[in-house]
Amino acid sequence: MSESLQALAEKVAERFGAAIEGSAIERNELTLEVAAGSLREVCTALRDEEAFAFEQLIDLCGVDYSAYGRDEWDGENGPDTGFSRGVEGGSGRDCAFTPKARFAVVYHLLSVKYNRRLRLRAFVADESLPRIDSLVDIWSAANWFEREAFDLYGILFDGHPDLRRILTDYGFVGHPFRKDFPLSGHVEMRYDPEKRRVVYEPVSIDPRTLVPRVIRDDHRYLGDGEAHES
Rank of each mutant, 00 (worst) to 15 (best):
R93A: 07
L110M: 14
A101H: 02
F52G: 03
R70L: 11
N77H: 15
K100D: 05
R102H: 03
P79Y: 04
R121I: 06
G89R: 03
E50W: 06
T81Y: 05
F83P: 00
L46C: 02
Q56G: 02
R119W: 00
A96H: 13
V106F: 05
Y107E: 03
E55T: 12
L46G: 08
K100V: 05
F52K: 03
R121K: 15
G78E: 11
S66Q: 11
T44P: 01
G62N: 03
A53E: 05
K113I: 08
F54L: 07
G90W: 04
W73A: 11
K100E: 07
R40H: 08
G78T: 03
E49M: 14
L57M: 13
E76C: 10
C95F: 13
T98C: 08
A45D: 07
D59E: 11
A101S: 14
Y114C: 06
V112T: 13
N115Y: 09
V106M: 13
S84F: 09
V106I: 15
R102W: 01
K113H: 13
F83C: 01
A101C: 03
E55G: 14
A125R: 13
R116K: 13
N77D: 06
A104K: 04
G92S: 08
V63M: 15
R40A: 14
G69L: 07
D94R: 14
D48Y: 02
A51K: 07
L110P: 04
W73F: 15
P79E: 15
G92K: 06
L57V: 11
A53K: 11
L57H: 04
A122C: 12
L39S: 00
V105C: 08
P99N: 10
G82N: 02
N77G: 00
L118E: 00
Y65P: 02
S84A: 15
F52W: 09
F123K: 00
R116T: 11
R121N: 04
T44G: 14
F97I: 09
P79S: 14
E55M: 09
E50G: 09
L120P: 00
F123P: 00
H108E: 06
C95V: 14
I58T: 12
A96N: 08
R102F: 01
D74K: 05
A96P: 05
T81H: 08
W73M: 12
L118P: 03
D59C: 04
R116G: 08
V124I: 15
R116H: 01
V42Y: 06
T81G: 10
T81Q: 02
G90T: 11
R121P: 01
Y114T: 07
F54W: 01
R40I: 15
F54C: 05
K113N: 10
D59G: 03
G89H: 12
R119Q: 13
G75F: 14
G78K: 09
V105R: 02
F123W: 09
A96E: 09
T44F: 10
L110Q: 07
V124D: 05
